[in-house]
Simulated scan of single mutants.
Amino acid sequence: MESDLRLIEMPPDGAGHVEIEGLAAGYEGARVLDLDRLSIRKGEFLSILGPSGCGKTTLLNSIAGFVQPTAGRIVIDGADVTGRPPYRRGLGVVFQNYALFPHMTVAANVAYGLRVRRLDKAEREERVREALRLVGLEGYAERRPKQLSGGQQQRVALARALAIRPPVLLLDEPLSNLDAKLRREMRVELRAIQRRIGTTMVFVTHDQEEALALSDRVAVMNGGRIEQLGTPDEVYRRPATRFVAQFIGAANVLEGTVTAGGLDLGGGLVVGGLPGLVEGERAVVAIRPERIRLSEAGAGTAGTVGYRAFAGDAWHVEVRLADGRMLSVQLPDTGAGAADPPGAGTSVVASWDPADVIVLESGAGSGTDAGSGTGSGAGSEQGAG
Rank of each mutant, 00 (worst) to 15 (best):
T257H: 02
T334I: 10
L114A: 10
R115S: 13
V284C: 14
L91H: 01
L331S: 03
S351F: 05
G303T: 10
L214A: 03
L33C: 12
G272T: 11
A219I: 02
L59V: 13
A192G: 12
S39D: 15
E290D: 09
K42I: 02
D216W: 02
L360S: 06
E142W: 00
E2S: 15
G50F: 00
A141G: 08
L170A: 07
G136L: 11
L212R: 01
I248G: 00
V357M: 02
S372V: 15
R320C: 04
D120T: 13
P86L: 15
D172Q: 10
G324T: 08
E381G: 04
V204P: 00
L254R: 02
V319M: 04
A322V: 14
S39F: 01
G14C: 03
E125I: 09
L134N: 06
Q208T: 06
G22R: 06
G306F: 01
D369Y: 06
R41M: 06
D369F: 02
G262I: 02
D369H: 08
V116M: 15
D120C: 12
R288G: 04
I292E: 00
E44V: 05
V75D: 12
I8H: 14
A350N: 05
D313G: 15
I287E: 01
P342F: 03
V244G: 02
L59Q: 05
P69E: 05
L321T: 08
S176R: 12
R291P: 00
V204W: 05
S376N: 11
N252T: 08
V67N: 09
L148P: 04
A213S: 10
E210C: 06
G50W: 00
V106Y: 01
Y307K: 03
M186Y: 06
L119D: 07
D77W: 08
I164S: 08
Y307P: 00
R320W: 01
G379S: 06
G223M: 06
D264P: 14
T70W: 00
E381R: 02
L229N: 00
L169D: 02
G273I: 05
G298M: 07
W315V: 06
N97Y: 11
Q147H: 11
A131M: 08
R115H: 13
G261H: 09
N222M: 05
G324V: 13
